[in-house]
Measured scan of single mutants.
Amino acid sequence: NKASVVANQLIPINTALTLIMMKAEVVTPMGIPAEEIPKLVGMQVNRAVPLGTTLMPDKVKNYE
């Protein structure tokens, strides 16, 4: 099972992601793969992401 990116804290809307905000966890359904964490640093979320929520591609601005 592959790990996904999960919010390590509440991430407010329009916040630029940092390493400390994210952790890798095996979750269902799968979100953004954990190996993409370095790519996500500096990207902004387009909505608030509660603690423990899986980061889905549609929650990150300009994620492809």
Score class of each variant (00 low, 15 high):
Met22Gly: 04
Leu19Asp: 03
Val26Lys: 10
Thr28Trp: 14
Asn14Lys: 06
Met43Gly: 00
Gly42Tyr: 04
Gly42Glu: 03
Leu17Ile: 12
Met30Arg: 12
Pro12Lys: 08
Lys23Gly: 09
Arg47Tyr: 12
Asn46Glu: 07
Asn8Ser: 14
Glu25Asn: 08
Val5Ala: 09
Gln44Thr: 13
Val6Thr: 05
Ile11Glu: 00
Val5Asn: 03
Asn46Arg: 10
Leu19Trp: 11
Ala48Asp: 14
Val27Tyr: 05
Val6Lys: 02
Ile13Asn: 10
Ala48Asn: 13
Val6Ala: 02
Val6Phe: 06
Pro57Ile: 04
Asn14Arg: 05
Asn14Asp: 12
Val41Cys: 08
Lys39Asp: 11
Val41Asp: 00
Ser4Tyr: 04
Ile32Glu: 00
Ser4Glu: 00
Glu25Ala: 14
Met30Thr: 10
Thr15Tyr: 07
Tyr63Leu: 04
Val60Gln: 02
Val26Ser: 07
Lys23Phe: 07
Lys2Phe: 12
Ile20His: 12
Thr28Pro: 01
Thr18Leu: 08
Asp58Gln: 07
Gln44Met: 13
Leu17Thr: 00
Gly52Arg: 02
Pro12Met: 07
Lys61Thr: 11
Val49Asp: 05
Arg47Ala: 15
Pro50Glu: 11
Glu64Pro: 13
Gly42Cys: 08
Gln9Val: 13
Met43Ile: 04
Leu40Thr: 03
Asn62Ala: 08
Asp58Phe: 11
Met22Glu: 03
Ile37Arg: 01
Lys39Ala: 11
Val5Trp: 06
Ile32Val: 03
Asn14Trp: 15
Ser4Phe: 05
Ser4His: 04
Ile20Met: 14
Thr28Ile: 13
Ala16His: 13
Tyr63Gln: 01
Lys59Cys: 15
Asn62Ser: 08
Asn8His: 06
Ile20Leu: 13
Met21Gly: 00
Ile13Pro: 11
Leu10Gly: 07
Leu17Asn: 00
Glu64Leu: 15
Ala34Arg: 04
Gln9Tyr: 06
Met43Glu: 00
Leu19Pro: 08
Asn8Cys: 11
Val6Ser: 03
Thr28Lys: 11
Thr53Gly: 12
Glu35Cys: 15
Ala3Ser: 09
Tyr63Glu: 01
Ala24Asp: 05
Pro38Cys: 13
Pro38Asp: 09
Leu40Pro: 03
Pro38Gly: 09
Val5Tyr: 06
Glu64Asn: 14
Glu36Val: 07
Glu35Thr: 13
Lys2Asp: 09
Ala34Asn: 03
Glu25Lys: 14
Val26His: 12
Thr15Phe: 07
Met56Cys: 10
Val5Cys: 07
Asn62Glu: 09
Pro57Glu: 03
Pro50Gly: 08
Ala24Lys: 06
Ala3His: 09
Val41Thr: 04
Pro50Gln: 10
Ile32Leu: 04
Lys39His: 13
Ala3Gly: 10
Val45Tyr: 00
Thr15Arg: 05
Pro38Tyr: 10
Leu10Cys: 15
Leu51Thr: 11
Ile20Asn: 12
Gly42Gln: 03
Asp58His: 11
Ile32Lys: 00
Met43Ala: 05
Val45Ala: 02
Val26Ala: 07
Leu40Ser: 02
Asn1Ser: 13
Gly52Trp: 05
Asn14Ala: 07
Pro57Arg: 08
Ile37Ala: 04
Val41Gly: 00
Glu36Phe: 12
Val45Pro: 06
Lys23Thr: 09
Glu25Tyr: 10
Lys59Pro: 01
Ala7Gln: 01
Ile11Asn: 04
Pro33Ile: 04
Pro50Val: 06
Gly31Tyr: 03
Met30Ala: 13
Gly31Met: 03
Val26Asn: 10
Lys59His: 15
Ile11Cys: 05
Gln44Phe: 15
Tyr63Thr: 03
Ile37Met: 12
Val26Asp: 07
Asn62Ile: 02
Thr28Ser: 14
Gly42Arg: 03
Ile37Asp: 00
Gly52Cys: 08
Ile32Met: 04
Ile13Ser: 10
Val27Arg: 15
Val27Phe: 02
Val45Cys: 05
Lys59Trp: 15
Val45Ser: 03
Lys23Gln: 06
Met30Asn: 11
Val45His: 00
Leu17Trp: 03
Val60Asp: 00
Ala24Cys: 08
Lys23Ser: 09
Val26Glu: 08
Asn8Arg: 14
Leu51Trp: 11
Tyr63His: 02
Leu17Phe: 06
Lys23Asn: 07
Gly31Trp: 05
Met21Arg: 00
Gln44His: 11
Asp58Gly: 09
Pro33Lys: 07
Glu36Trp: 10
Ala48Gly: 06
Met21Ser: 05
Ala48Phe: 08
Lys2His: 13
Pro33Trp: 08
Gln9Ala: 09
Ala3Trp: 09
Gln9Asn: 04
Asn1His: 14
